[in-house]
Design a protein around this nucleic acid. Structure first.
Length: 782
DNA sequence: AATCCACTTGTTTTT
DNA sequence: CAAGTGGATT
């Protein structure tokens, strides 16, 4: 038998070994769910299933990466790479690109992110001459998203009595028309939003039996993680794919379902047995993560929810300390209390800062902790907020990439038609838009042939338009030839984006330059690794299709660093920390005021709190503030109802929740007066950091600016042009080489002729890799 | 066409 | 408080 199986407990082992039919694994918090999934995949392969016949769907890219690397450790990297593992969105976008013709898209379709999609909705509302105070774009977007996740087309939506009546009552009867126009515009732009990735996968599998059969055949075994957070659309994809063989295993915990706002349906997990009557259920109830006290406290809380699957989560770890509850006078003081406690505990217990996490309900709360931690020189890292790929300067360059790859991309077009400023203003864009709408064409086709569409513009403007068009066309010509990095550099320089970035020497401007540099650095790394490993797909579209579904969590460059983690509870799901602070436990904040109107809403908030508590291994502290700065003014607040729902025996209440007396010592009391807030200089987060560091950029150059310094000079020199690595050392099996990225390695095998010599190299720390010698950057050592 | 300023507005969580 | 809008100014 496979030796690693003895690392599992009885119920874990049963879950791993059962694979004759559908199974449902109810995995309590901290019960070794990932371990079970990993071993189950390894076990399936030991039974002879090929990696590419296994489909494993996770909730985040990060989770997929982690599982992949664990499997790589067991089975080797070559094997783990062939698994179909990723989020629903990333796996099915890959499949949709491959099968795009069946749906009337090209394989280069753009994926609109939330803000692209909102902008489009805004435009449509404006074009339909509706009032955007009645038809709030964000709200409409939510309605459309929910509808798509229920697999409603605009037609079906408009025929649904409930929807229509609701919209009439809410005085937004045109919603279904907006939905219709929105979908039409996406299609015309050769673009899909996040929900379309799932929706269209369903359409593909529904309408093309041969395609369905192909994938059913391929995915011999399907595993789904975090099943409680799947929506109907996702659920149906799984059902369709598993329909032929029923070899499907879903893992989840109904007590941790926290994504209903995104259409997640807790019913999916509750109904799994109904869908597959022969399904076998396994329960993982032993929590290995937390102390008994924390597990029991969390249990006492979640008991207040009505609907849930029966289970008994328990811990055999130490009993542990009680959960601390402390009230603060203000949000400011809450920050002080928490940062003091962190500093004190780190000193006393000699733990690393990376063992601490501050968890909050809303991203806006991060600021106050940022300030108090900075004041004490405690290093921290904030996750979430606006992600790298959402920064303006990054979106701008990416819009260029997008337009070159898919000229019909309307949002990209609008974003860059006049950026950097080239004298094509709103009026002109308005005219193009109108002509496009009139002829049902894309903005790009109007631009390409202004005469045909009778564009009423003057000669000067026409010339500017032609200039823009020719520039994009010149990029287009090279798109399939140049490697991603070279293409990206070309676009960045020639479009004037680089020049524009150089002009601005303000701190903000410097930060923008750095971000651009970072993006280009990422593209460079992508290109290199693809070329070195002899992959074909090293073009810009390949890069874009890979990053367009990444979030900030996925670019965790210094996750290892010695820093306190600050994040929302949502993004903390699946993580664990020795010491956890759950902050802002106040009515209207947590539970959120948005959730209070419905019982279901409060129950979801309670599950969210349950998730927060169960992140902690040893120590947990809960805080609330009596007053908080919100919407520009100080508002008073009451302790959260959830605090009273935890069994008293698990708590150590340092500040009577109702009494107003302070038991926090003098120094803190002083700091609780709001006057301090005003006298505190409020640095914007980056301006301070900026002043400390020296800019890697040089002064703007007078001639044609060359973008990046540091990374890029090195980069351009380092990577030889294709086929020109003449100076490289020749190698034979047994030789030892030092590789720029993978470190030391031994040559195992060399194959191929002079122009495409490939070496199999066994690296000390990076596993075994196939390298194309003409691209690889290495030195022969022995 | 671009910039600037005064005003309103709103706020949960994210693939 | 912040972002976003609309209007006025150059």
């Amino acid at each position: 038998m496979v030796e690693y199986l003895n690392q599992l407990n009885e119920s874990q082992l049963q879950a791993v070994e059962f694979n004759q039919g559908p199974s449902l694994i109810i995995a309590g918090a901290g019960s070794g769910k990932t371990r079970v999934l990993t071993y189950k995949i390894a076990y399936l392969m030991s039974l002879g299933l090929a990696p590419h016949n296994i489909l494993a769907l996770t909730f985040t890219n990060k989770a997929a990466r982690e599982m992949k690397s664990r499997i790589a450790a067991l089975e080797g990297e070559a094997t783990s790479r062939r698994l179909w593992m990723g989020t629903f969105h990333s796996v099915f976008s890959r499949i949709l690109r491959r099968e795009s013709e069946f749906l009337g898209y090209t394989s280069d379709f753009t994926i609109y992110d939330t803000s692209d999609s909102r902008n489009l909705i805004k435009t449509i509302i404006k074009e339909m001459a509706l009032d955007d105070k009645t038809y709030k774009p964000a709200k409409i977007q939510g309605v459309i998203s929910m509808a798509k996740n229920q697999l409603f087309t605009p037609e079906r939506y408009s025929q649904d009595k409930e929807n229509i009546e609701h919209d009439i009552r809410a005085k937004v009867p045109m919603t279904s028309e907006i939905f219709k126009a929105y979908n039409a515009r996406l299609k015309a732009s050769n673009a899909m939003d996040f929900d379309d990735l799932l929706f269209n996968t369903n359409v593909l599998l529904r309408d093309h039996p041969d395609v369905l059969a192909r994938y059913q055949q391929q995915f011999q075994y399907i595993l789904v993680d975090e099943y409680q957070d799947t929506n109907f659309s996702q659920h149906l994809i799984v059902q369709r794919l598993a329909d032929a063989h029923h070899r499907v295993c879903v893992v989840g915990d109904d007590a941790q379902s926290i994504y209903s706002f995104r259409g997640a349906n807790i019913e999916n997990i509750l109904n799994f047995q109904k869908n597959y009557p022969e399904a076998k259920t396994f329960k993982l109830e032993r929590n290995y993560r937390s102390t008994q006290n924390i597990v029991n406290a969390a249990n006492s809380l979640i008991k207040k929810n009505t609907e849930q699957l029966e289970k008994n989560v328990f811990s055999k770890n130490e009993v542990g300390d009680k959960i601390l509850i402390t009230g603060a006078f203000s949000d400011f003081e809450e920050g002080m209390i928490v940062s003091n406690k962190v500093a004190e505990m780190r000193r006393a217990k000699k733990t690393s800062y990376s063992d601490f996490a501050i968890l909050y309900r809303t991203n806006a709360q991060s600021r106050i902790f940022e300030e108090s931690f900075r004041k004490k020189n405690i290093p921290y890292r904030i996750y979430g907020g606006l992600s790298f790929y959402q920064r303006k300067e990054i979106k701008d360059v990416i819009a260029y990439f997008r337009l070159v790859i898919n000229p019909n991309d309307e949002e990209a077009f609008k974003r860059i038609i006049n950026f950097p400023a080239r004298g094509i203003g709103d009026t002109t864009v308005g005219k193009i838009s109108e002509a496009a709408k009139l002829h049902n064409a894309s903005l790009w086709s109007v631009l390409s042939d202004p005469l045909r569409y009778n564009l009423n513009i003057n000669a000067g403007t026409a010339k500017k338009l032609t200039g823009f068009r020719e520039m994009i066309e010149s990029f287009l010509e090279q798109l399939r030839q140049l490697p991603a990095y070279d293409m990206a550099m070309l676009i960045t320089k020639q479009s004037g984006v680089a020049h524009d970035a150089y002009q601005d020497t303000s701190p903000e401007g410097m930060s923008r330059q750095e971000n651009l540099e970072e993006l280009l650095g990422a593209i460079h790394e992508f290109t290199d690794s693809r070329m070195e490993e002899g992959e074909e797909n090293y073009l810009l579209p390949d890069f874009l299709s890979e990053v367009s579904l990444l979030t900030d969590q996925d670019t965790d460059k210094d996750a290892e660093a010695e820093k306190v983690t600050m994040m929302t509870i949502h993004s903390a799901k699946g993580l664990e920390f020795k010491n956890v602070f759950v902050v802002g436990l106040e009515e209207e904040l947590f539970p959120s005021s948005m959730a209070l109107s419905e019982v279901k809403g409060v129950e979801e908030e309670r599950r969210l709190f349950y998730v927060a508590l169960t992140r902690a291994e040893d120590f947990c502290m809960l805080t609330y503030a009596r007053s908080r700065f919100r919407n520009g003014q100080t508002e008073s607040s009451n302790p959260s109802r959830f605090l009273k729902e935890i069994g008293e025996e698990f708590l150590d209440v340092q500040d009577g929740m109702l009494s107003r007396s302070f038991s926090l010592g003098n120094e803190r009391r002083e700091s609780s007066f709001a006057g301090l807030r005003a006298s505190e200089p409020r640095w914007s987060s980056f301006s301070e950091e900026r002043n400390k560091r020296e800019s890697p950029f040089q002064k703007p150059q007078t001639v044609q600016p060359v973008l990046p310094r540091s990374n890029f000079v090195k980069a351009e020199n380092a990577r030889p042009k294709a086929g020109s690595n003449d100076g490289a050392d020749d190698v034979k099996p047994g030789d030892v080489i030092a590789h720029e990225r993978f470190g030391m390695g031994t040559i195992v095998e060399v194959s191929g002729d002079a122009n495409s010599r490939k070496a199999t190299v066994e690296f000390e720390n990076a596993g075994t890799k196939q390298l194309l010698l003409k691209f690889a950057k290495y030195k022969k050592v022995k």
